[in-house]
Each structure stands twice: as C-alpha cells, then as structure tokens.
Simulated scan of single mutants.
Amino acid sequence: MSWQSALACWIVRRRLRPETAKPVIDVARARAYAARRVWAPKVPAGWRLTEHYAARDLPLRGEWLTPDTVAAKQATILYLHGGGYYFCSPRSHRSVVFPLATLARARAFSLDYRLAPEHRFPCALDDAVAAYRRLLADGIPARSIAIAGDSAGGGLALAMLHALRDASDPLPACAVLFSPWTDLASTGASIVTNDGRDPMFHGAALARAAKLYLGDADPKNPGASPLYGRFDDLPPLLIQAGDTEVLLDDSVRVAEKARAAGVIVDLEIWRNVPHCFQLCAPFMPEANRALARAAAFIRETTSGKAPHRLPETSIV
C-alpha cells in the first residue's frame, strides 16, 4: 500500500464517508461538492478537448478528447462516469478519462447522460445506448470501440451491453469496469462484511442512492442491475475493484456469472485502495498501474486480437 493510497483513504474516510451515513441524500449538496472539489487536469500535449453541450449535439452530449494526429486504426473509448446516477459529470472524471485515452492511444468521448432524480431509470441507459448507436451511425466500427465506466457508470456500461445484445446491435470490442455498481438490490455480502472497512461508503447508503435513481422501478431489473441479466455473447470484460469496498461483490458475482456464460473476464482485486481509485491518477501509483493495465486491455481487444487470458482473479 503506497502512502498516496493511505492518504487518499484517510481523506475520503474523513470527508466523504460521514455524508453516506445521513438518512437522506442531499442531491444539491453532492453536486455542489463535486463541482467545487473537481480537479481538472490539463489537456495532454498533442491532444484537444472539445465540449458538446448544445441541443444539436444530442445524443453525443459531453466531451471529446482527440489526438491531433489520428491513427489509421483509431480506437474509440465511450466513457460513462460514476456518481450514483445523481451527480458528477465528464468534467469531474477527466482525471481518469485523460490518462486512459492517452495510454490506450484512443480518442475518448465522455457522455453527459441525464441524472436522477430529475431523470430516473431508464433515462441514463437510454442515453448510453443512443450515444453508442450514434457512434456507429457516424461510421465508427463496433470492433474499434471500448466501453468504460466507473461505479454507477460501470454498471451502466454493463447494462448497455445487455441492451445492445438483446437488440442485436453490433457489440463493442470490450468493456472496462472500475468498481461497477451492478446490483441496486444490495444483496452482496460485502455490503455487510466490508461495512466499516470501506473508507468511502457505509453499506446502507447504496439502497438510498438506488431508490433515488429507480423510483418505483424493480431494483432487480437488468437494465438497472445488470447482475441479474444474461451474460452470454458479451465481449471481453476487465473489472477492477478494491478489496475493502462494500461494492466488491458486485464485481465478483458479475465475473462469476460472465465466466459461466463463456465470457472472457479479467477480474483484478486491488488491496487497500478507495472506491474508484483510478480517479486518483496521477497522484496514486496504484491508479497509474491500474489505468496502464486497462489501456493495454483496450489496445489488445480493439486491435482484433483475442485478449490474453489472465488468472481468473488477480490479487494486485
């Protein structure tokens, strides 16, 4: 465990975890906190950032990060940010999108999907599916697209794969999921066993956030909780999660179900890191290594090669 990870865990335990003990989620406060605390890295040299937030930009509302020199076979990352479906934005997640794109040598689009409670399930899923279909309509081959997301965005990415497969759409080359939230019914054992170990969340906070997004919808609807969906015929998955997370079992159970369905899954469980630690790049060495591994996975799968099979579960 690096001192940077120890410091990050101490900060989130002190500043963020107490908020998750409150019986009611203050959406406005969460959004204001994220906007105030956001650290926006500089656009990497040789790359350009373009923001698309006009009505005419729909369904690709968000941010493009594009290299000045486009390769002949340029991969594209469609990134879905986390934030419990009710806060955060492409801007708040530049610290993970920028290094992932540059390391993968891929252009990236970070989607600004609609947020709850103003726009409850299935709005986020509808926006993600529409954005992916626009990429295809714009001539980007499915085999050159990687889907990536963290926390709620990781669950949304997996739910989108299910929806696309069920609709017989061409599927992307792969998906990269950082600490995905895949079970809004909160049935994972780690919600209890890691309650107190997780530096960011109280386990009970997950059900409150789920209700905010779902309203009266079934928490086991695969469109919201992809853990309960079918996993056959999905593309290769890379999942990274921390061993102390209350959401750990959301990753472990997805990996088990996907492997049982014949899907190639690399599950990496990282020791003593906070939830979605990849957002701590470049400060945290563990985040830098995790993003490098994710970028290598994206390069490999979008190149048309079968991904190298790692051990079923890696403890990092």
Score class of each variant (00 low, 15 high):
218 D>V: 06
252 V>P: 04
8 A>D: 04
103 L>Y: 03
28 A>Q: 12
10 W>R: 15
108 A>P: 02
228 Y>F: 15
58 L>H: 12
6 A>G: 09
21 A>P: 01
201 F>A: 05
96 V>I: 15
11 I>L: 14
166 D>Q: 15
155 G>C: 10
174 C>S: 10
271 R>Y: 00
110 S>N: 06
240 Q>N: 06
61 R>T: 15
32 A>P: 00
117 P>N: 06
295 A>P: 05
262 G>V: 05
115 L>C: 10
10 W>K: 15
66 T>S: 12
121 F>Q: 03
243 D>Y: 06
161 L>I: 14
116 A>M: 11
164 L>H: 08
257 K>C: 08
167 A>S: 15
80 L>S: 07
207 A>N: 04
200 M>V: 13
89 S>H: 06
26 D>H: 02
149 G>R: 07
301 T>P: 08
260 A>S: 13
14 R>I: 00
75 A>T: 10
82 G>Q: 04
162 H>A: 14
112 D>S: 13
275 H>A: 04
100 L>W: 09
100 L>A: 06
176 V>C: 08
101 A>D: 07
45 A>P: 00
52 H>I: 03
177 L>D: 08
36 R>L: 06
292 A>R: 14
193 T>K: 08
235 P>T: 07
266 D>Y: 00
102 T>L: 07
121 F>I: 01
1 M>Q: 00
203 G>C: 08
130 A>T: 11
299 R>Y: 00
69 T>K: 13
22 K>M: 09
95 S>H: 10
5 S>G: 10
270 W>N: 04
237 L>Y: 05
31 R>V: 04
33 Y>M: 10
234 L>M: 12
283 F>T: 13
131 A>T: 02
34 A>F: 11
168 S>R: 12
